[in-house]
Each structure stands twice: as C-alpha cells, then as structure tokens.
C-alpha cells in the first residue's frame, strides 16, 4: 500500500460511517451462450455464469482494485457496478438506486449523473478538442456552452492539461489522452469512478502519472479499477481477486 493510501486509510478509520456509493450482495450474472437457434433451435441454450454470488461495497474516498485472469468476471462486475448491465440475481445499488429496477434510460441517467467511466482505450472523439471531449457528458445534461467551457477548462487544469485544452486527441500523447478521459469522467462530479485497465495502453512512466491522478481523486470519490497490472492495483486500498466469477480469499 502506498504512503498516500496509508494516509487515506487513517482518515477513513476516523470516519467509520463513510457513505457507501455502490454495494452488491450475492450478485449473479449469467449469459446465454450462442444465438437463439433460429426456427429449429431447441430453445434451451447453455448458460454461462460470469459472476457467482459476489458481495461488495465501495465507499466514498476508497479505491477498490479488482484483479483476476481473463474470464474471471472482472469486466462483468465493472459493467454491473457502472449500471451498464443488470444482474441475473442478487442485490445491486449504485448511488442509492436499485439498478435492477431501472429501465435502460434510467440506467443511462444514473451513469450520466453518478458514474464516471474511464476506458483502457480512452474512447475520445478525435474530431473534438480535449475541452469539447471533457464537456461531452454536460451536453446531455443540457448545460450552457459557457458553463460547459468553464467546467471543462477547470477539469483539464486539474489533470495538468490546462495548456492543451484546444488540442485534439490525435495531438496528445497516450497519457494525456487518458487524463482527458479522466477529466471527462469527472465532468458531472460523479460519486463513483470506474476504470477498466486505465494504464493498459500506457508506458510505465505515463501510467504512473495517471495512477497518481487516481490517488488524488480517491479523496472525494469511490473508485473501482480493474487491472492485471500490479503497480496499478497497488494504489488500491483493497484488492478483490476474482476467479471463475467468485471472490477468492480475503481482500488484501
């Protein structure tokens, strides 16, 4: 655990009633394998259990790492916590909302207002400037141009890209693009930040800068990040290890 983690841990111990941002209980997610079988299909397709009884809670100010080999259920858990998907069984609450009860539109609204997503491959729009990319979620919220501009400029300054606000993604390095993506994830002041392999496309030094940024953000947000990379997981307050859709052993 890093020194900054230790500091945060001390702070958290002093505040035992820290707000729970996301919580799941006995979470199950099953997928049907194959297509519908067409007109002559048997109708009973095999199912795969990607998550099997996972229980977890994430509090504000906490960074939770998720590790596990491919197929262990990391992405499935992230998708559920991000309200991109709904569980087959079990309880799932994000920002106080019961995800199972939300419509697709309701889940989109939940994501827009309460969840920030950071992708491994950034997924910025190449046609737009860094500032316009950061402001994208605010468009959907109906913010005015001036408000969007001010917020995006401020966030870019926070992630150290104040001077590069007008640059397009193609004019930025990988690390800079990921920082723009993080700024975009923070645009709506979400409670929960979810990052899937956030340093997967970056070299070690650049990855370190991004991880420092996450550590700084960990003060005010609940962060869940999935990775294979040990230095990345090292910034987490606790790491959950998944194997075959189940949590293995105790948190570390």
């Amino acid at each position: 655990m890093s020194s900054r983690n230790q500091e945060r841990g001390v702070a958290r111990e002093g505040a035992t009633e820290t707000e729970v941002i996301a919580a799941c209980e006995s979470l199950v997610r099953e997928y049907t394998r194959g297509s519908g079988g067409g007109w002559f299909g048997s109708g009973s397709l095999p199912t795969v259990r990607a998550l099997d009884g996972v229980s977890l809670s994430v509090r504000r100010g906490e960074i939770v790492g998720i590790e596990g080999p491919s197929g262990s259920g990391k992405s499935t858990l992230l998708h559920l916590l991000a309200a991109l998907d709904t569980p087959t069984a079990g309880e799932l609450r994000v920002a106080g909302e019961d995800v199972r009860r939300l419509s697709e539109r309701g889940r989109a609204k939940l994501r827009l207002e309460h969840v920030g997503l950071v992708f491994q491959r950034f997924h910025l729009l190449p046609a737009l400037s860094a500032r316009a990319n950061v402001a994208l979620p605010l468009v959907e919220l109906g913010w005015s141009k001036r408000q969007r501009r001010e917020r995006a400029t401020s966030l870019l300054a926070d992630v150290g890209l104040g001077e590069r606000a007008t640059h397009r993604p193609g004019q930025l390095s990988g690390g800079e693009q990921q920082r723009v993506a993080i700024a975009r994830a923070l645009a709506t002041e979400p409670d929960l930040l979810i990052a899937d392999e956030p340093t997967g496309e970056l070299d070690t030094a650049t990855g370190r800068q991004v991880l420092d940024l996450f550590e700084d953000l960990g003060e005010d947000h609940a962060i869940v990040l999935a990775s294979h990379d040990q230095p990345t997981l090292a910034i987490a307050d606790r790491v959950i290890s998944l194997r075959d859709g189940r949590v293995q052993g105790a948190d570390r």
């Binding site: 991109l84 827009l112 997924h123 729009l125 994208l136 979620p137 959907e140 994830a185």
Partner: peptide, 10 residues
C-alpha cells in the same frame, strides 16, 4: 466510440 458515448450516459 459510440458505445463509449452511450456508456457515459448519452
């Protein structure tokens, strides 16, 4: 990218 934009809530 479209999927990502949808994912962030558009």
């Amino acid at each position: 990218r479209l999927a990502a934009i949808k994912a962030i809530g558009w």
